[in-house]
Computed example of a mutant assay.
Amino acid sequence: MNSALQLQPVEMNVIQSLDLGALNNLQADKSHEEWLLQRKGKFTASEIHRLMTALSKPNELPVGAITYVIEKVAETLTDGLPESFSSEAMQWGKDNEVEAIEKFEEKTRLFVNNTGENQKFIKYGKHAGCTPDGLGYGFGAETKCPKSSTHVIYKGILNGQDLKKINSDYYWQIQFSMLCAKKSKWFFISYDKRFSKEKHRLHYAVIERNENDIELLKLRLQLAIDKKLELIKNFK
């Protein structure tokens, strides 16, 4: 072999490092695509709150809920990956989510698995499911890495009632996650590493399963599924 074409050990290490990085990115992209396909056409925990408005008439789907149903119909009947949206704030949360779980584990001495790239989609029947940020023995975890001003607000969340009052979207997300994952409690975790003092960076609260609200969720979900199947029939 021409010595001019031989790579020095340092150069070979760089190339191997670049190849490994590219491979990891490719695997991450593939896993993300598989996750999107698993969720496609299904009602998911992150958006289940869209079914939980106008609860004074629990047996009726409000306009916003019907819009959500139509989106699921479109996903079911079309090819390819569903449309997804990511903002700068959402990316910040994704980038810091694993660190938040690690800090939570350090603080509570609880072990959390199925985090980060190892998260799994848990099906609830054929038409719904959730992707917990983490799962432990008897509990799940929902992690938020919000704006610093929002983190200040979240420090006031001590239980499910507080969460329902301060951010009902997350409340319904967690209740539905407990239904899907068959858990009796869920940790709501807020983390912001930008705070100067470490003790101010992590906040968490235990959210207990509320069976009355679970029943409301199941009722609205069934209405949504029935509407989805009804609309799909129009295309046959």
Rank of each mutant, 00 (worst) to 15 (best):
179 L>T: 09
178 M>L: 10
229 L>D: 01
64 G>R: 10
75 E>Q: 13
217 L>R: 02
173 Q>A: 03
29 D>N: 13
76 T>I: 01
137 Y>V: 00
79 D>K: 08
216 L>T: 08
114 N>K: 12
58 P>R: 09
41 G>R: 04
110 L>V: 09
134 G>V: 10
170 Y>K: 01
54 A>T: 13
204 Y>P: 00
203 H>W: 03
155 K>V: 03
185 K>E: 15
93 G>S: 12
158 L>M: 13
180 C>H: 07
140 G>M: 05
23 L>K: 13
10 V>I: 15
175 Q>S: 08
24 N>E: 14
14 V>T: 13
72 K>Y: 01
79 D>C: 06
8 Q>P: 09
87 S>G: 12
55 L>Y: 15
198 E>L: 02
115 T>E: 14
194 R>L: 07
229 L>W: 00
81 L>S: 11
218 K>S: 11
93 G>I: 11
222 Q>W: 08
140 G>R: 07
86 S>G: 10
5 L>R: 08
77 L>C: 10
53 T>W: 04
1 M>D: 09
168 S>V: 01
184 S>R: 06
16 Q>A: 11
105 E>D: 05
161 Q>L: 09
71 E>I: 01
194 R>N: 12
115 T>L: 12
74 A>W: 00
54 A>N: 15
71 E>F: 06
75 E>N: 09
209 R>Y: 06
111 F>D: 05
104 F>K: 01
102 E>I: 11
113 N>Q: 14
122 I>P: 03
184 S>F: 04
20 L>A: 15
210 N>C: 07
176 F>Y: 14
176 F>A: 04
119 Q>E: 15
108 T>P: 02
75 E>H: 02
110 L>D: 04
50 R>V: 01
123 K>V: 02
47 E>P: 02
87 S>M: 14
145 C>Y: 00
222 Q>N: 11
143 T>H: 00
60 E>L: 12
23 L>P: 01
157 I>A: 08
2 N>W: 11
69 V>S: 02
128 A>G: 04
107 K>H: 10
192 D>F: 00
27 Q>G: 04
161 Q>K: 14
207 I>V: 13
236 K>D: 14
156 G>R: 07
74 A>Y: 00
185 K>Q: 15
168 S>M: 01
186 W>R: 05
5 L>W: 10
114 N>R: 14
43 F>T: 01
233 K>S: 12
90 M>R: 11
129 G>T: 08
40 K>F: 06
229 L>H: 04
109 R>C: 10
224 A>N: 05
103 K>L: 01
84 S>A: 11
161 Q>E: 14
136 G>S: 01
48 I>P: 07
215 E>R: 11
10 V>S: 14
118 N>G: 13
164 K>F: 03
106 E>G: 08
80 G>R: 07
11 E>V: 15
72 K>L: 02
25 N>E: 15
110 L>P: 07
213 D>A: 05
180 C>A: 15
168 S>F: 09
109 R>Y: 03
60 E>S: 15
66 I>G: 03
67 T>S: 10
21 G>V: 12
161 Q>Y: 09
226 D>F: 00
92 W>D: 09
85 F>P: 06
223 L>T: 05
196 S>D: 12
46 S>V: 10
226 D>Q: 02
32 H>F: 12
118 N>E: 15
107 K>Q: 10
218 K>M: 14
113 N>G: 11
73 V>P: 02
82 P>L: 06
49 H>F: 10
198 E>S: 03
156 G>T: 05
136 G>T: 05
